[in-house]
Simulated scan of single mutants.
Amino acid sequence: MSNAIQEYITYLHDFRKISHNTEVSYKRDLKKAAEYFEEQNVPDITKATETNLNSYLLYLERDHMSPATVSRNIASLRSFYQYLLRVHRIEDDPSVSLKSPKVEKKVPEILTVEEVQKLLEQPNIQTDKGIRDETMLLLLYSTGIRVSELVNLKVEDLNLEVGYLTCRENGKERTIPLSAETEEKIRTYIESARTRLLKGRDSEYLFSNCSGSPMSRQGFWKILKSYSAAAGITKDITPHTLRHSFAAHMLKNGADIRNVQKMMGHADIATTQMYMRLM
């Protein structure tokens, strides 16, 4: 990988404090672009011209990349070249005239209350795994947190005496109240299944897999998919579907939109207002 790309990724990690997923995304996009330029006899991505970049975008479109993916790649390239300009690695920014394709915003799909209930009924709570899975599903749906926040939750992030959890990401934190049902499920999980799943190990993380290691995003995704199929839900469910469903159901039940915005961690209330259309 180009030294310039590695320096940029280090900058994002150490100084911008971006999320791990965003860091991986930038690294992947830039590495793919560098490989393309090398095939076009431009061995150094810092030497790419505006023509080279436009050629690369045409290549992505011919490769049937979605407008959203092309737009993300443009954002990665723009940020990279702006960094190079600031640190005087280049004299002109070749990405300055790049134009992103129009991305049609899709209305997110949500589950009905009945579908959520069916999903929550699937884990076998006679087993440690089932107790853990039910707790994770309910926690995700009842708080609207992101799956990355779910799997990175630490025991110290919970205040079960008062009934709330704290999410921390990118130097920001927000406090989210827990329902009585969710609080009870978490207590049951911690006092029983969690200890056995950890197999005697110490862990600061709330959820672990059956090997005692911290749960991964991919691991939870597979769990959700299996329970969705078992519940007979035909919608293409992702962890974000439960987050969307939480927001839509909260607003439908009369929750204040500002409170929902805070719980979701939305910087712009317009993002939260989108869920009004799903009611």
Score class of each variant (00 low, 15 high):
94 P>F: 08
109 E>G: 06
79 S>P: 06
114 E>L: 07
115 E>K: 02
74 I>E: 09
89 R>N: 05
110 I>G: 02
78 R>Y: 06
104 E>L: 13
83 Y>I: 00
72 R>A: 11
113 V>Q: 15
87 V>K: 04
102 K>G: 10
76 S>Q: 12
85 L>Q: 04
109 E>S: 12
73 N>C: 12
80 F>T: 10
92 D>M: 10
72 R>P: 12
81 Y>T: 05
73 N>H: 15
107 V>I: 15
93 D>L: 08
90 I>L: 03
78 R>Q: 13
79 S>E: 08
106 K>C: 07
108 P>E: 03
86 R>V: 10
90 I>N: 01
96 V>L: 12
86 R>P: 01
107 V>S: 09
80 F>N: 06
112 T>G: 05
81 Y>R: 06
113 V>P: 05
110 I>C: 01
107 V>K: 07
111 L>R: 01
106 K>H: 13
91 E>P: 05
91 E>M: 13
112 T>E: 07
104 E>W: 11
88 H>V: 05
77 L>T: 06
112 T>V: 01
108 P>H: 05
91 E>Q: 14
82 Q>F: 11
87 V>T: 12
90 I>E: 03
95 S>F: 03
95 S>Q: 04
72 R>E: 10
72 R>Y: 12
105 K>Y: 08
115 E>Y: 03
102 K>W: 09
85 L>V: 00
77 L>H: 05
103 V>Q: 11
90 I>M: 03
90 I>P: 02
112 T>A: 04
112 T>M: 01
91 E>K: 15
76 S>T: 10
97 S>I: 15
96 V>Q: 11
102 K>M: 09
75 A>C: 07
116 V>R: 12
84 L>T: 00
76 S>V: 11
85 L>E: 02
108 P>S: 05
89 R>D: 04
92 D>P: 03
72 R>F: 08
95 S>P: 02
75 A>L: 06
85 L>T: 00
80 F>C: 12
92 D>F: 15
78 R>A: 06
89 R>L: 07
81 Y>N: 03
116 V>I: 15
101 P>R: 11
113 V>G: 05
92 D>Y: 15
90 I>Q: 05
81 Y>H: 10
89 R>M: 07
88 H>C: 06
88 H>F: 06
87 V>R: 04
104 E>C: 08
76 S>H: 14
116 V>K: 11
108 P>N: 04
105 K>N: 10
